[in-house]
Nucleic acid binder design. Sequence first.
DNA 1: CAGGCAAAAATTGTATACAATTTGAAGCAG
DNA 2: CTGCTTCAAATTGTATACAATTTTTGCCTG
Lengths: 229, 229
Amino acid sequence: MPSITRAKIATAEEITAQLTDAVHEHRLKPGAKLREDEVSDVFGVSRTVVRQALRAMAFEGLLTIEKNRGAFVSKPTLKEAHEVFQARALVEPSTARAAAARITPGDISLLERHIKAEHEALDQDKPGLALKLSGQFHLEIARIADQQTIEQFLKQLVSRSSLVIALYWKRRNALCESNAHHALIDAFRKQDGPLAEDLMKGHLLDIYSQLDLREHEEGATTLRDALRK
Amino acid sequence: MPSITRAKIATAEEITAQLTDAVHEHRLKPGAKLREDEVSDVFGVSRTVVRQALRAMAFEGLLTIEKNRGAFVSKPTLKEAHEVFQARALVEPSTARAAAARITPGDISLLERHIKAEHEALDQDKPGLALKLSGQFHLEIARIADQQTIEQFLKQLVSRSSLVIALYWKRRNALCESNAHHALIDAFRKQDGPLAEDLMKGHLLDIYSQLDLREHEEGATTLRDALRK
DNA sequence: CAGGCAAAAATTGTATACAATTTGAAGCAG
DNA sequence: CTGCTTCAAATTGTATACAATTTTTGCCTG
């Protein structure tokens, strides 16, 4: 039986990876607090190491550290949500074009396996896992384009997108973006850069349009506030 | 008389800021090592805080931390150098266009003061300071465009550009980009977005072309290597 | 005297102890 | 019972002590 939490064998990077996964899969939701000694108990290391991991995640925008109060899973504002998808629209299409020019058969089968895993996750009713895999698909493309600088930035954007989706996703339905990914792979297979660029642009607009980015009434932070009227 | 190093009054952010400035102004050159207790002596805090600062800078790409060996000012490879300016060419022109649409008179005078400070730095034979100010000019534009996400990314890119320039700048001459910045301000004053976009694109290409990005023979890292032949 | 081995010094990595701050609860006046 | 103050508990921030690793030094051998 696999236990999520095993003691005594964890480096800062492993902790970062596991916590990041948890956020990406929405097992840790925006606003959730990560207490330091709780995390250190779970992973069997001292707070020193935990703090490294938490700070690393804060730099990616996944966590927000409030002085003397602790680390919380970030809650992107509406403005940030818009900015994230604007930035992705700026960066990803041209990256997809570059990827189309460099892609190898090995890369293509890797992307296909990615989509397959995504389908399986949906079948097993694990939408969080599917979402995480979907994000990795986009990152793979930057890797294939062989642009590490862009990839690093995109990693942050995808992370924040996950938070945005957790907060502002319209439907409870599964995300139906497999088709878009399939179409992208077809373009890659034909090494059709302009097509890949267009498809990516449309795909991002599609996701963007499925978000509910009107002004929300801020969910009351305090119970007291929630009951005030 | 202002002393660069004052003890007992330093937070992690202040240390990060001062060290970042030193790197941006090329007082700390690529490859330089930053020992933890040396830094903690200088700033009068414990290594705990210093390590926070060093890690923060590593996340921005300014430092490279090698396990059990320490923190060094990063030495971007040729590939990274290309990537940085490709990324800037992707991001900055459209940001300049957005800035032109939102700029206020206050912003314009701020940018003008920036250029003025840059000139003064050059007159006083402080090319490092001038370079730092030049980078901040580009960041200001992202701020004016009111795009924090892009600004954050651009901050990293500008930082790395400084390292690239330290390693690959062709001439020892002063950088003659004030004209480009002046032209940009003119476009901003006219609120001419497309012009600002074009100017920025040309400006970046100009800098890029002044780099010597052919294969360098690697400057010997070790004294032993340097004397080998 | 070059080369390599070994011990010592220096440096970074981690854990723990203590200080500062915030949070929550108990008590009390109105 | 509401609102306020005060005190205790919980939590994070910082410094220090110790462990692990790397780097240097000195010595010995060939």
